[in-house]
Design a protein around this nucleic acid. Structure first.
Length: 917
RNA sequence: GCGAGCUUGGCGGAAUGGUAGACGCAGGAGACUUAAAAUCUCCAGCCUGUAUGGGCGUGUGGGUUCAAGUCCCGCAGUUCGCACCA
């Protein structure tokens, strides 16, 4: 209980602390009631549209600080653009299919659907408490038939336009869990959950033909001028265009039992110019020819098995030496009379090129290592510039640089580049080779042997083959009654779900029990948001009106897969007639991670930050008093227990404080460190700003109630008052003018900062303006005392009070994108007749107050600062220079020197270039 | 190995080629208070100094310029991405 003493002034008794627990729900309700954030299905013709989207969350059950940062950032943009007059689409949904739900089912016996929907419920509560200006009426969850049924429709349409394929492919197979694992889920050759040794298995899989768009996806990157350069580079390399040649080598005397199609080995090379340096041909361990050899020869089989076991994990790649197995088979060279051995080599990948290469040891380090180990010939074919051919040797270092060709028959003397086209021309004439463009990008395998995903709408009929589910039978819904008590895909085990009849011949048939990769779900949700409840995947006017997403915001971890898939999917949807554009995201911003100190107790266990008390010496456990070791600052993660729960922070500090802090410290693209000191500092600022603005509101109540009802009226009054200056008031008027300049300068600075995503700079400017406002608090106190004595009747209407009012009002508008609840509360007290901040236009700076009456100019001698002078803006250069020269410090340095040149940059700098006289 | 980025006080960071270190955090001093908290005011790159001064200073070495944290070239450290890619 606090007692208000009689000596306290009226103003300070009004300085109640900001009670976020009451205020935040109040304004969230007000926004919802007013519908300020909702937008029409088709963007209005008279207003520019703006689509802000943050990557939608996976409903793991816990909202984390990374989400808060991501959505706070997006909300700043959404609210700022809205204030600027844009019609802003800012939707939210859930990437709700995925393996964690199935794991929860297996580990805790919860149904994936219940688990997921409950998680969505609780995360939505926290998200709503943060007060983001989202279009909640457009909320979608990918695990609902309303969404995934339309996805099945898209898939069938993709089939019609030839973008779907089914063929066998190698997969990582976990024999214990009986499922396919993604490469990321294989850790050191073992399944990440079961620990079982992973097998390579060939399975029939559905593929989307993303490679059809390899060229287009690559070229499209160039036009994405609002994407980070590094994301574009990563995609470029992932798509991996390389120009080269395919060369067919016929086997010499193929064994009679060898199938006809293996009588030739085709290699891919980017260096056809080095063909005369060839000393062997190498094929991958899973190359068809290698498999045939393995069948004939147990030793070969052993080597092949060895290669397959090692796989291509990072460690094995770096440490494994280049080894091979000589098959005894030989190929003939296109231009030479020599035969070359075929080796099975562990460094050749079946996935790249044709799974075969010709080895030119002189021009490739791996080939050289291999050749040296097995004593194969090394013939240099490129002579580096300024090198004597007679003495040139390749020892342990292959030469990949430029020069001219040697030992290469008709290519001798040419540069490698010239030689490439010449040799390709010859190969073409002989019909054994051609120029090809090779892509690293593979088709996208989308089959997963899992329950919690979108069913692939296909029926397998023994007579008709794979038949699409007819559209009128969509959606193919997941059965609810599944059990997870045995390994494998529950859909496959279900007693009757998969049994159906063939839509073509009506005979018994089975459903496809594979579900889509969850990346499919997230490849078109941005389009679905434009018509989330439509009975077709998209609605033309809506999707074409709103797309592309003007600003997409998310983590860098999605730089390749999600963003590439979404770009492909949009093109595919375009081809299938579901959207009119190719590039879904016009602007992309990748925000940094949230990190935190980590703590360990003496037993070496990680300790959560909220159990830790920081002392001047270090850290101790809050409960036990045990001293703790402070670990590195790293990304918040459950395993390190260095997480801070957003809900707990909102309870303690309020949503605005949490938002303000995640936005204030670091530039959004960089990682930020969450600190207790930082968030409580943000909390103090919230209180400071609130108190100061409330003080202004109290001073101005009379004026407001009687006269100023709108910002136009305010401006008018301000203009009048600034013209009628009396002698007594000159001191306060000076303060008023300086505050008004500050106010308008801050409008410009904050606007510019927000345009450039420099949210931390915008925050800094708001801090400055707040301090400037607080600095005038005492001035009015004094003045108010005089005023009440002298002019009881006259309302307080001096220029300073009005400047303070303008400043406070501006602060409300400027901080609203970051701290919307606080902004509304302050605004409602300051301008009770003006409605919501959320529907106020962004403040405009008055040019009158951007002009300055005086500037401080730097005076340099030889570029070194020697003093400063005051000047009137755009003052006559000669006058300025004379004054600069006369400046005492400057004059001292000029003594005995001769000025040979004077640089004058108006309003900024005078620089004297001197030499000794 | 290839590619991209980063490097500024004790810390996070600011700075259209023009007064480096805005703003915040942590710190110090003071005011208020019986006291603490809160709040407010002031100080604060380093060295030197009584200083209104002087010297040095944006990882490092060069260069361009009247003037470089900023532009160019090299080097180091560091982070991220890709990688037996033929």
């Amino acid at each position: 209980m606090s007692h208000t003493s009689s000596s306290e002034s009226v103003l300070s008794s009004l300085s109640l602390s900001y009670d976020f627990q009451c205020v935040e729900p109040k304004w969230q309700a007000a926004w919802e009631k007013s519908g300020v954030f909702s937008v029409p299905d088709v963007p209005p013709a008279h207003q520019p549209k703006y689509y802000v989207l943050e990557m939608f969350p996976y409903p793991s059950g816990q909202l984390h600080m990374g989400h808060v940062r991501n959505y706070a950032l997006g909300d700043v943009i959404a609210r700022y653009k809205r204030a600027q007059g844009f019609c802003v689409l800012h939707p939210m949904g859930w990437d709700a299919f995925g393996l964690p739900a199935e794991n929860a089912a297996r580990e805790r016996g919860v149904h994936p659907k219940e688990w997921t929907l409950a998680n969505i419920e609780s995360m939505r509560v926290t998200l709503k408490r943060l007060g983001f200006s989202l279009n909640w009426e457009r909320e979608i969850a990918t695990c609902l038939p309303e969404y995934y049924g339309q996805q099945q429709k898209l898939f069938l349409d993709f089939m019609k336009v030839g973008l779907v394929e089914r063929h066998e492919s190698w997969v990582n197979w976990d024999p214990v869990d009986q499922t396919v694992l993604a490469n990321e889920q294989v850790v050191e050759g073992r399944g990440w959950r079961s620990g079982a040794l992973i097998e390579k298995k060939k399975l029939s899989q559905w593929f989307l033909r993303i490679t059809d768009y390899a060229e287009d996806l690559l070229k499209g990157l160039q036009a994405l001028d609002r994407w980070p350069e590094r994301v574009k580079t990563m995609q470029e390399r992932w798509i991996g265009r390389s120009e080269g040649a395919k060369i067919r080598f016929p086997l010499c005397k193929p064994p009679s039992s060898l199938p006809q199609n293996l009588h030739n080995v085709t290699v891919f090379t980017t260096r056809p110019d080095t063909l005369f340096g060839m000393s062997f041909l190498a094929i991958a361990a899973d190359h068809p020819l290698a498999l045939w050899v393995a069948e004939q020869n147990p030793k070969a089989a052993e080597f092949v098995a060895e290669c397959q076991r090692l796989g291509t994990s990072v460690e094995s790649v770096e440490t494994a030496p280049k080894r091979g197995f000589n098959t005894g088979l030989r190929v003939s060279h296109p231009f030479l009379d020599t035969e070359f051995p075929i080796w099975i080599a562990n460094f050749v990948l079946m996935d790249y090129g044709t799974g075969a290469l010709f080895g030119c040891p002189a021009s490739d380090q791996r080939d050289l290592d291999f050749a040296r180990y097995y004593n194969l010939p090394v013939t240099p074919v490129v002579l580096p510039p300024q090198t004597e051919q007679a003495t040139y040797r390749i020892e342990t270092q292959a030469y990949t640089g430029d020069g001219h060709l040697i030992n290469s028959d008709f290519l001798n003397g040419l540069t490698p580049q010239e030689a490439r086209s010449v040799v390709i021309e010859r190969l073409k004439e002989q019909g054994i080779g051609e120029k090809v463009v090779h892509w690293r990008l593979r088709d996208w395998g989308i089959s997963r042997q899992r329950y919690w995903g979108c069913p692939i709408p296909i029926i397998h009929c023994p007579t008709c083959g794979a038949v699409p589910v007819p559209e009128n039978q969509l959606p193919v819904t997941l059965p609810d009654d599944v059990s997870f008590d045995k390994p494998g895909n529950p859909l496959d085990h279900h007693p009757h779900w998969k049994h159906t009849t063939c839509p073509v011949c009506s005979k018994p048939a089975t459903r496809e029990t594979d579900t889509f990769d969850t990346f499919v779900d997230s490849s078109w949700y941005f389009a679905r948001f434009t018509a989330p409840h439509a009975l077709t995947p998209t609605v033309p006017d809506a999707v074409n009106g709103w797309l592309a997403v003007d600003q997409y915001i998310g983590g860098i971890e999605h730089a390749i897969l999600h963003l590439l898939y979404a770009r492909f999917f949009t093109r595919a949807m375009h081809r299938a007639g579901h959207v009119g554009i190719d590039e879904p995201f016009a602007g992309l911003f990748t925000q940094g991670m949230v990190s935190h100190e980590s703590y360990k107790d003496q037993a070496g266990q990680w300790v959560y930050p909220d159990e830790v008390e920081r002392t001047s010496q270090g850290a101790i456990h809050r409960m036990t008093g045990e001293s703790l070791t402070i670990g590195r600052v790293e990304k918040m993660s459950k395993s390190k227990r260095n997480t801070v729960a957003p809900a707990a922070i909102i309870d303690r500090f309020g949503a605005d404080t949490a938002r303000w802090f995640v936005l204030s410290d670091s530039p959004p693209e960089r990682d930020m460190e969450w600190t207790e000191a930082g968030v409580s500092g943000a909390g103090r600022f919230v209180q400071r700003l609130f108190r100061s603005v409330c003080g202004v509101a109290a001073e101005n109540n009379e004026i407001l109630n009687s006269e100023i009802l709108s910002s136009e009226a305010l401006t008018k009054t301000l203009t009048e008052s600034s013209q009628s200056e009396s002698a007594q008031q000159s001191a306060t008027n000076e303060a008023a003018e300086s505050l008004r300049r500050m106010t308008h300068r801050t409008i410009v600075a904050v606007t510019e900062a927000l345009e450039h995503f420099a949210i931390n700079v915008a925050v800094a400017r708001i801090h400055e303006l707040t301090s400037a406002l607080i600095a005038t608090d005492n001035l009015t106190d004094n003045f108010a005392e005089q005023n009440t004595k002298n002019t009881q009747e006259e309302p307080l209407k001096d220029s300073l009070a009005l400047a303070r009012f303008e400043c406070a009002r501006t602060l409300c508008l400027l901080c609203a994108p970051m701290m919307p609840h606080l902004a509304e509360e302050m605004f409602s007290r300051l301008c009770p007749h003006e409605g919501l901040v959320a529907s106020q236009p962004w403040p405009k700076a008055d040019p009158q107050w951007l002009t300055v009456t005086r500037v401080t100019m730097a005076v340099q001698i030889l570029g070194k600062l020697r003093g400063t002078i005051d000047a009137i803006p755009d003052e006559e250069p000669a006058v300025v220079i004379a004054r600069a020269q006369a400046q005492p410090h400057v004059a001292r340095f000029l003594e005995g020197k001769k000025i040979i040149k004077t640089i004058h940059v108006p309003n900024r700098i005078v620089n004297f270039v001197v030499k000794d006289a």
